[in-house]
Design a protein around this nucleic acid. Sequence first.
DNA 1: GGCAATCCTTACTTTTAAGTCAAGATTGCA
DNA 2: TGCAATCTTGACTTAAAAGTAAGGATTGCC
Lengths: 167, 167
Amino acid sequence: MKVSAQEEYGLRCLLQLARLSPGESLTLGQIAEGEGISQANAGKLMWLLNKAGLVASTRGTKGGYALARSAEEIHLSDIIKVLDEDMLEGHCKSYTGLQEICVHTGDCGIRPVLISLHEIVQSALERITLAQLTDTESNVDQALYQIHVGMSRGVARDIPSPKHVRS
Amino acid sequence: MKVSAQEEYGLRCLLQLARLSPGESLTLGQIAEGEGISQANAGKLMWLLNKAGLVASTRGTKGGYALARSAEEIHLSDIIKVLDEDMLEGHCKSYTGLQEICVHTGDCGIRPVLISLHEIVQSALERITLAQLTDTESNVDQALYQIHVGMSRGVARDIPSPKHVRS
DNA sequence: GGCAATCCTTACTTTTAAGTCAAGATTGCA
DNA sequence: TGCAATCTTGACTTAAAAGTAAGGATTGCC
Ligand code: FES
Ligand code: FES
């Protein structure tokens, strides 16, 4: 289970835009430089995000990118849905081995695991907005830690020790 | 965020072994056939799991694979750790763009997100054993749903409606 | 209108993950 | 002992993701 390059870089680019003052915008070149990636690569990412309606682009000289809505209204789940193309396109549509369809026709013990896992991740991402990430790292970390603790309460035993977070 | 082929197939192979009666074992050919994958591919997966100490192999005729410990003692988190090689090898060790090291030297808003996400997934997987997955799909689904609801209590508002689960 | 800055789009190349192959090693059995 | 069944291992091939390149389209400014 891992975060793809597209997801991570896309998120990072959006975070740059979220830090702008209202009315400001960034060009592809600026975004690329800000993340240390090529302009071509940044272009592809912004194209995806634009197509999905998360950012607004202006063409021509003086053009650039800005968030399409305020950072408070953009949840990480929205972003990941866009950048992770085939997110859960039905379990066993993808990994079917040699056959056309999965061998586990009826009863499958894996399916609920993958589905639930996906929902759990989605639940967590829905609780975080882009705006929250513009804070300092230690504050972001603390907020995230609260979500984890919150999610794990009720079934909880052992929450991993807080990392950078002072209780 | 997605589950890799190795993770899924590996988990499925292990699940076959978990369904065996004590003392029984399966050969590579049987495992491969059971999942609809090639024997070569199954061999590679079992090799990984064997190296990690999750399964025990016997060589020679009458050989085969069995779980190294009881299915009740194997948590999904153990399995995923083995099959997902470079799981979280430090944020920004992998995606460094064009530079050698990440541009976000000090303060980073993304890092806590990735770390927390990883911990949340891990928390969920630690609560599920292989043995639980040998039940019928609807029972597994119900058990998993309980974990999700449990995790989301406290911060919760909107839990996605139960799917196959009757309340 | 013309030019420069910028975004848009498609096709291509590179890199990485996934899967295959073939030769070797170990065991059980006759 | 010799053979057949099985796992082991590393190198190889193929498929998918990531990243690049190049030309087209739109806008603002003079
Ligand atoms: S339906 Fe294919 S493994 Fe679950
Ligand atoms: S340290 Fe590189 S993006 Fe966070």
